[in-house]
Every structure is written in structure tokens, then in C-alpha cells.
């Protein structure tokens, strides 16, 4: 199980280094050896902290006019487009776990009835490229309040139908532009962009915007993330 070993590794990195665990991953040159890797991970954790200080709860990501929207939006995932999951709207449920008062799963109809907000913002990928797109859906804050989530918890974690997972800090989850997006470019969210629900977070890099979200948890235990566990910076704020 690759996921399990990745999670173990990140936990090891967070909690203090175990050379036993790392001997499985030994590299061979200067930049790949263990002490260097430890310094790099610690710098990344330091950057997490700096970014959470830089983050302002009221600072809005720049928004753009309709004319600025990129007509052809870029597909990006760790698998080709035709392998994107095909979720059945009738059987879809958003499962809730962790510090949430009301854990009743949500159907698509109920999600669509939530208050909706729209945004035209820039999606910035960790690879460097960016595209401007239009998304709309329910502000995550409204949803978290609705399900009586503990808003003082540290993390909100997401699990996706394609095996992807990621997590964000609570201040970002409560940011007014963090939305559960159900539409893209005024159309029902296309399959390749995460039907039926993508979390759109314009204050974070693209890989922190999970698609095909099927489960949400509110927790104080660091949930990690698919790329984050491989060494991509966890906070990855914009």
C-alpha cells in the first residue's frame, strides 16, 4: 500500500526523525541524504508557519471580469483525463467525520440547495502555470456552520473518489472565497474538473483544491495530503 507508507513517512517526518524508517528510502548523493532531507522538511514546516502568519482572513484573492476567463482550461491530475472517476449523482453522498455535530451524509440535491456564491479567480499551479476560471458553489464556512463543525479545530481534510486526498488549515476553510464548487464556467462541474464537487480555494495553489470530494473531516490530527506526503509544501498558500 503506497498510501500507507507515505502517510507513515510524513508522520515520521513530523514527529521527529526515525532513521529506521528512513533507511528504507536512502538516497545516494548530497542532496538526497538523510540529514539534508531532514533540514529541507524542517524548512518546509517553517514555511508552513510563515505562510499561516502571512495569511489574512479578510484578504481576498483578486477577481477578474468574465472577459479574462481562459476559454480552454487546463486539465491536470496524476492520471490521464479518461481515467477520471465517473460519479453517479443518484448514489453520491458527501460523508462527514471528525468534530462535526451533524454527520448525516449529504446528497447532491441538498448540496445544491445551499446558498451559492460565484467567483472568477486565478488558479495557480505549483508547476508555475496559471489559468483564470469561474466557479460557483457554497462557501465552505456556511456548510461547516450548517453541520455544526468545530470551527476551532486545526484542519479540514478531504478525501476524493480518485484516491486523492488533501487538507487545509481552518482559517483558510473559513475564508469567504473558499467554496464547495458545483459549477465551472456556468455549467455543471465537468467530470474532468471534479464532478460533482471541487473545493475551490483561490488563496492556495491548485493541488490544494481537491476534486471529486466524497468525504470531509474536521480534525486536530494532521491529515496530510497526496502530494504533501511526497514533500510538497503543506500550506501552499498563494
Amino acid at each position: 500500500m503506497r498510501f500507507l507508507s507515505k502517510l507513515d513517512r510524513r508522520t515520521v517526518m513530523r514527529g521527529g526523525f526515525s532513521f529506521g524508517a528512513l533507511s528504507l528510502l536512502t538516497g545516494c548523493d548530497l542532496t538526497d541524504n538523510e540529514p539534508v532531507q531532514r533540514v529541507l522538511w524542517n524548512m518546509s514546516f517553517w514555511n508552513d508557519r510563515v505562510q499561516s502568519w502571512l495569511f489574512s482572513a479578510n484578504r481576498l484573492a483578486p477577481t477578474y471580469p468574465e472577459s479574462a476567463v481562459d476559454r480552454v482550461f487546463r486539465y491536470n491530475a496524476f492520471y490521464p483525463e479518461e481515467q477520471a472517476p465517473r460519479l453517479d449523482p443518484a448514489s453520491y453522498r458527501l460523508e462527514l467525520s471528525g468534530s462535526v455535530g451533524n454527520k448525516r451524509p449529504w446528497t447532491i440535491e441538498r448540496l445544491y440547495q445551499l446558498p451559492q456564491a460565484s467567483q472568477i479567480t486565478r488558479h495557480v499551479c505549483v508547476e508555475g502555470w496559471s489559468r483564470i476560471g469561474k466557479w460557483s458553489g457554497c462557501p465552505l464556512r456556511i456548510f461547516l456552520e450548517r453541520v455544526e463543525a468545530d470551527l476551532t479545530a486545526k484542519y479540514v481534510g478531504f478525501i476524493c473518489a480518485d484516491g486523492y486526498y488533501t487538507s487545509i488549515d481552518m482559517p483558510t476553510a473559513l475564508h469567504p472565497q473558499t467554496i464547495m464548487a458545483f459549477t465551472f464556467a456556468d455549467q455543471v462541474l465537468p467530470r474532468k474538473f471534479g464532478y460533482p464537487m471541487k473545493i475551490r480555494i483561490p488563496t492556495k495553489l491548485g493541488f490544494k483544491n481537491p476534486k471529486f470530494v466524497v468525504a470531509l473531516s474536521v480534525t486536530n490530527n494532521y491529515p496530510g495530503g497526496f502530494w504533501e506526503d511526497y514533500g510538497y509544501n503543506w500550506f501552499s498558500g498563494s
Binding site: T31, D32, L40, S44, N47, W227, G231
Partner: peptide, 9 residues
């Protein structure tokens, strides 16, 4: 990932 870690360190 490695390059980003080095760059941001």
C-alpha cells in the same frame, strides 16, 4: 518537490 524544497529553503 525536491527543487521546490531547496528553492524555498
Amino acid at each position: 518537490a525536491g527543487a521546490l524544497q531547496w528553492h524555498f529553503a
